[in-house]
Design a protein around this nucleic acid. Structure first.
Lengths: 327, 327
DNA sequence: CTGAAAGCGCTTACAG
DNA sequence: CTGAAAGCGCTTACAG
């Protein structure tokens, strides 16, 4: 069996209390004792049981991360950064892929509560707002409004939408279509759409919006996109609110005999490493994914440590236009 | 504060033992008592503390997953499937992005041990073989040989490499280059290279191999690839052992004025959802990522439950050629 | 500088 | 059918 503190104590000829003290570097210990204990720990290949520690300390150093799916490159990269930063700060990540399904989100939330996580980073639908501040748990949202008291971190979506739309306008596009996710959700990412609408109206044009039901199914994406060419054949510019939509559009356009960028210009959103490797020609708005992760964690740590109470409710982080050849 | 079992017991007018029994559905409880207890739990919004349970049960229901990075679409999708399947079976995932750095791997391994994980799925370098069976922990590897006793799950790499190379040969390529990761590691994925070499030699040709140092840096990839055109300008076929390499190659080729597939045919490996959305024209060998995840978890569960001792040491899962237009 | 005792929130024999 | 007691592996006052 795994050695426990008692085994170390016996071997070193001291009390468990003393072993605990050298483990935690707390209180006074003579160097001699410390060395004896350390020798015993090495000999037994002893590792403290963090479950027992958590129970006593009421601190698990566990962070729950709920997001739609790490299969999506944006969330895959976000997860990488979140986990890496957490690890550097002594926190561990319990991962939850909710696929934006409310029932899964609820189950995951309960699971995280049972596991005594110190905090949660949420990047998924989560209507269950009440559930969050019922427990007074540290929570930070990415790209979601959950409640007044839950900070939200996101890229500067309005600015991103503005830059994308302006680019298409300045390149002379006359019929600019927006391809976006479904519109029944009030999220910060919706500001990308708002910027598009604002700009088009300011230029006296009519916004044309196509909504793609779910991000995670290639076929349904293509079906919606195909409709664009039937209903709006004059399209000569597209702002897609994520790069996967943009890519799908380009593929459908190409197979419809429309050349990008000669006949239709396309701008995406996200600019992940993966997109930049697989589709470097895509012009897109790049989110600072590492900074989003870092900001979310900083806020969460502050909530956990209760250092500050007046955290900014919204953090809008700078985006960057990545010029490819599609626009 | 969070309610505990004692609070529920008091409110329901029973002993903690009884509450525990209804919680675990163990032993005889009268319906009346059960209802009283359940009512009290609802009223207090009680959730059992899984940390305390784990401590007693010596079972955390936690699975550690160590892999290079979820930023890579293959591992992002693998992580999604692993976590989803685990969740369905009542297990939780502690995620570790090691970036293939040995020191990180060691730290993560220790962290997982301290946290009393029931098992580990490893998809990263991990020379520290000894560390694994020192503790007699349930471990399953993906695409890595760790030791005699650790089952390894992978796609049928040899078959995949064979199909890819055969395709290029059958399409008339004369100078077929292999783009692979660095060669100092004895992994199952190395069989992709072996199949390529075997086939070329069988056809009386000389293998030409280029090695890319790390998967996670676009610039260094491109530097290596650029060399191909200098040193081997007659190249007319490329088998890249992952899709990111393939994509980088295509991009460099294009900017060198070489047309794919007209002048050079390209086959990749992995065939993730992401690649198929962003680069659907790529011909590639598709790994059954969901099946890899499921197989690894099945094996791990058996190890954890100690149902069987004679598990297959290697599981080679079927790959599939996905015909795009690049070859 | 070191140790015995109590307790973190739960569960499981053991009695009754 | 129900409860009192002991213990999972650790830590922290409290004594000495």
């Amino acid at each position: 069996m795994k050695p426990k503190i008692e085994d170390v104590a016996k071997l070193a000829g001291v009390s468990p209390t003393t072993v605990s003290r050298v483990l935690n570097n707390r209180g006074y210990i003579s160097n001699e004792t410390r060395e004896k204990v350390q020798k015993a720990m090495n000999e037994l290949n002893y590792f403290p049981n963090d479950v027992a520690r958590s129970l006593f300390n009421k601190r698990s150093n566990l962070i729950g991360v709920i997001l739609p799916t790490t299969s999506n490159p944006f969330f895959g990269e976000l997860t990488f950064h979140i986990e890496t930063i957490c690890a550097a700060r002594g926190y561990k990540v319990l991962l939850c892929n909710s696929l934006n399904q409310i029932d899964k989100e609820e189950k995951y939330l309960e699971m995280l509560l049972r596991n005594q996580v110190d905090g949660i980073i949420v990047g998924t639908h989560n209507r269950g707002i009440l559930d969050y501040h019922k427990q007074n748990l540290a929570v930070v949202a990415i790209d979601r409004y959950l409640s007044e008291t839950i900070p939200v971190v996101c890229s500067d979506n309005y600015e991103g939408g503005k830059i994308a739309t302006e680019l298409l306008i300045s390149e002379g596009c006359q019929s600019i279509v927006l391809i976006d996710g479904v519109g029944d959700l009030e999220t910060p990412a919706r500001l990308r759409r708002k910027a598009y609408i604002d700009l088009l109206e300011r230029h006296g044009r009519v916004p044309i919006i196509y909504e793609i039901p779910e991000v995670f199914d290639r076929q349904s994406q293509q079906d919606v996109i195909s409709k664009i060419f039937q209903e709006c054949p004059e399209v000569d510019g597209v702002f897609a609110t994520n790069d996967l939509f943009a890519s799908s559009f380009i593929n459908v356009a190409t197979s419809n005999g429309r050349a990008v960028p000669e006949q239709i210009k396309v701008v995406g959103y996200d600019g992940t490493e993966t997109t930049q490797t697989l589709l470097p020609e895509l012009t897109t708005i790049k989110q600072p994914i590492d900074l989003i992760a870092k900001t979310a964690i900083d806020l969460l740590m502050k909530k956990i440590e209760e250092e500050v109470t007046d955290l900014p409710h919204e953090s809008h982080l700078p985006i960057k236009l990545v010029k490819g050849t599609t626009a």
